[in-house]
């Protein structure tokens, strides 16, 4: 019985630890000439909005492939944000 309650008590702590580790993992972001890091837990849409950009005017490319705005950044790799607005 004691062992079971110890496991039950450990579970949320482990979950929090995993969450914190994930949050700590940073993904490299490239946008225009700038480069920065972002926590991997968020989605591309959240990243775009967080940067004050309009999701209509930016696309995300991960490892050379176009990815949907609902994709999570993940725990590794690089994301390139491509501005789609042109004009003059």
């Amino acid at each position: 019985m004691g062992g079971r309650s110890a496991i039950v008590g450990f579970y949320p702590i482990a979950q929090s630890w995993i969450f914190l580790q994930t949050m700590r993992r940073m993904v490299k972001i490239f946008f225009r000439e700038s480069e920065f890091e972002s926590p991997g837990k968020i989605t591309i849409r959240e990243l775009i909005k967080g940067l004050g950009l309009n999701p209509q005017s930016v696309l995300a490319v991960k490892e050379g492939k176009l990815v949907s705005n609902e994709t999570r950044l993940g725990t590794e790799g690089e994301i390139k944000l491509v501005s789609v607005i042109s004009g003059g």
Partner: peptide, 16 residues
């Protein structure tokens, strides 16, 4: 890259 002369162009503001 956008044309260097298009920065601040009216068409871009309208698109935004």
């Amino acid at each position: 890259e956008e044309c260097p002369f298009s920065k601040g162009a009216t068409s871009i503001r309208l698109k935004e």
